[in-house]
Design a protein around this nucleic acid. Structure first.
Length: 552
RNA sequence: UGGGCCGUCGCCAAGCGGUAAGGCACGGGGUUUUGAUCUCCGCAUACCCAGGUUCGAAUCCUGGCGGCCCAGCCA
């Protein structure tokens, strides 16, 4: 496994592994796995698990496998497998092996037979509904199935017939024979195998018998010699079953399952079922819609792998249910982009400014640094002439308190250019401001004016020498911090999560920008060239995140 | 009300019997041709509550209170 910097953050799992190593367990090896079910796209919650699993392996000089948990053919497909693999690579990790639970179907079946032979599993003809009724409740014990004491020989025969397609879907299941009185419901003779005539993305129609998660996962971990099987809290109750299967099978290698809290991020959702719904009902443009918390969506919005890894590092790993504020993710991406993004100027909502004392046919080439702190990023040329465009918000006829921008008879610095002063406002009959009449001070290029202080700096572009662009302003997908707990989470969608700006103008140097390239549009935010829709003749930029703004 | 897990600053999170790290957020000062960045300062006499053990407790014990998960032939 290669990768970037391993995480620096310590957590309780690392402490536990360090302890294991000090005890000489697993010959001091650390082998983890990231086991997604290919039934959807990876999201920010998976990123936490990926960073934990791969990061832990890197930290302890071990390795991590990518393993598709493809035991439910009705929900899984190749498109998701490909997207998942791509996202893991994009995040910056390399797996030791890529495996599929379906690769183990034959072995799994044989382990099923072994369990029967040991008297630890039986074929049950009860229907799903009957099994549910006999399972008991949280406070009442379950009841044993009439089939529970079938002979081993009969069980073997029936299981083989199940495999060979002798029975209809749902007519029989293989169950573990544990304890119908167990206080842990997962131990009340859980189902191990079900009959399902479904086309599997990898094994096609070779099987009509599919193993359940609880049977599959522990054995897959065992086969791969996983030392630490990290999963989320809801599997805590399954650990006794995980251990039971491996113990009854006398597995030569018995991985240790350790649970941690899944990620919950405010103002978004990480439920795959609900993400599916957003896509299917068209509330977003797809799994890679920049508003989606999917890695594909975050990538398209302009989030970098580094920022996501940094985010995962910051939030920590514990067993406590928690909600992370969006501000943490925003901080991570701003920190990365502040250092790496070249600066540009873009005017989202243009206001025409005519510089009355600037020669009409002249256009000078000003020089602007691409980064205020990093000279290595070089500089560029900015055409400057008589008519420029500034942001409508950067002018106020009646300025609010502490307004540091342009006002009538006021002065302001044009970023990378001269200081200008406004003398007149031209309006239409409705009173809308159409144009500003200003003058520029030729003695203020690259120097401070004598005897007066101009505190405001605004961005601009030349009207004639600028490019039209579509700018997509993305905002949080939901209006409430915890949409998952809403009765109908769809109602909590933020209707203003996307604002498309069509009349924007950006500086000429952006003409050659390529898909995914990232910039800071000064004073506005970080943007990237949309990977799908942007064309050289029709540039489209996505807002990744705004600049931090402490002015209200 | 059975079982499992969790409770330290607004949000995360260190801490593992020796007297509350850090990050985000927030408030204030400085620098600044981005109201950005950077920088400096502030921000839990207090660790869910109540008892107890101890010279000493967020850490150990007892009892409460609060929250999350489990009754798929999903993972």
């Amino acid at each position: 496994m290669s990768s970037n910097e391993a995480n620096t953050a310590e957590n309780f799992i690392h402490h536990k592994i360090t302890h294991d190593i000090n005890q000489g367990l697993n010959d001091c090896n650390v082998i983890t796995r990231f086991p997604p079910e290919p039934n959807g796209y990876l999201h920010i919650g998976h990123a936490k698990s990926i960073c934990l699993n791969f990061g832990t392996a890197i930290k302890f000089n071990g390795h991590c496998n990518l393993r598709f948990d493809d035991t439910n053919p009705e929900k899984e497909n190749i498109e998701f497998m490909n997207a998942i693999a791509e996202d893991v690579k994009w995040l910056g990790y390399s797996w030791h092996e890529v495996n599929y639970a379906s690769d183990y179907f034959e072995q799994l079946y044989n382990y099923g037979v072994q369990l029967i032979q040991k008297g630890y599993a039986y074929v049950d003809s009860l229907s799903a509904e009957e099994i549910r009724q006999l399972r008991g409740t949280l406070t009442e014990p379950g009841t044993e199935s009439p089939d529970r004491n079938r002979t081993i020989e009969d069980n073997i025969t029936l299981f083989e017939k199940m495999k060979n397609g002798a029975f209809a879907d749902g007519s029989y299941v293989l169950r573990a024979k544990i304890d119908m009185n167990a206080p842990n419901i997962n131990m009340r003779d859980p189902t191990l195998y079900r009959i399902r005539r479904a086309h599997h993305p990898r094994t096609a129609n070779n099987w009509c018998l599919y193993p359940m998660y609880d049977f599959t996962h522990c054995i897959s971990d065992g086969i791969e010699n996983i030392t630490h099987s990290l999963c989320t809290l809801e599997f805590e109750d399954h650990r006794p079953l995980y251990d039971w299967v491996l113990t009854q099978l006398q597995f030569p290698h018995h991985p240790q399952q350790i649970e941690f809290a899944r990620l919950s991020l405010e103002y978004t959702i990480v439920s795959k079922r609900k993400l599916h719904l957003l896509v299917e009902q068209g509330h977003v443009s797809g799994w890679d819609d920049p508003r989606m918390p999917t890695l594909a969506g975050l990538r398209r919005a302009g989030f970098t792998p580094k920022s996501i890894r940094d985010f995962c590092d910051r939030i920590g790993v514990t067993k406590k249910d928690s909600w992370i504020e969006m501000g943490v993710l925003e901080h991570s991406i701003r920190e990365d982009l502040n250092a790496s993004a070249t600066r540009k100027m873009a005017v989202l909502k243009p206001l025409r400014v005519v510089l009355e004392n600037y020669p009409e046919d002249t256009c000078e080439q000003l020089t602007a640094n691409n980064h205020p702190q990093n000279d290595q990023l070089g500089s560029r040329t900015l055409p400057f002439d008589q008519v420029i465009l500034i942001e409508q918000d950067d002018f106020a006829e009646i300025p609010p308190a502490k307004f540091k921008r342009l006002t009538l008879n006021g002065e302001v610095r044009l970023r990378n250019s001269y200081i200008i002063k406004c003398h007149g406002i031209i309006k239409n009959e409705q009173g809308d401001i159409l144009e500003l009449r200003c003058t520029y001070d030729p003695d203020t290029l690259g120097k401070k004016p004598e005897g007066r202080k101009v505190k405001g700096v605004i961005h601009w572009v030349s009207e004639k020498h600028s490019l039209p662009a579509e700018i997509r302003l993305y905002d949080r997908l939901f209006n409430v911090p915890h949409p998952e707990s809403e009765e109908d989470f769809i109602c909590a969608l933020n209707p203003n999560s996307l604002e498309v700006i069509n009349g924007a103008k950006v500086e000429m140097s952006l003409a050659n920008s390529r898909a995914n390239e990232q910039y800071q549009f000064e004073r506005i935010g970080y943007f990237c060239v949309d990977s799908k829709d942007s064309k050289p003749e029709q540039l489209i930029f996505n807002r990744t995140v705004t600049l931090r703004d402490t002015w209200k």
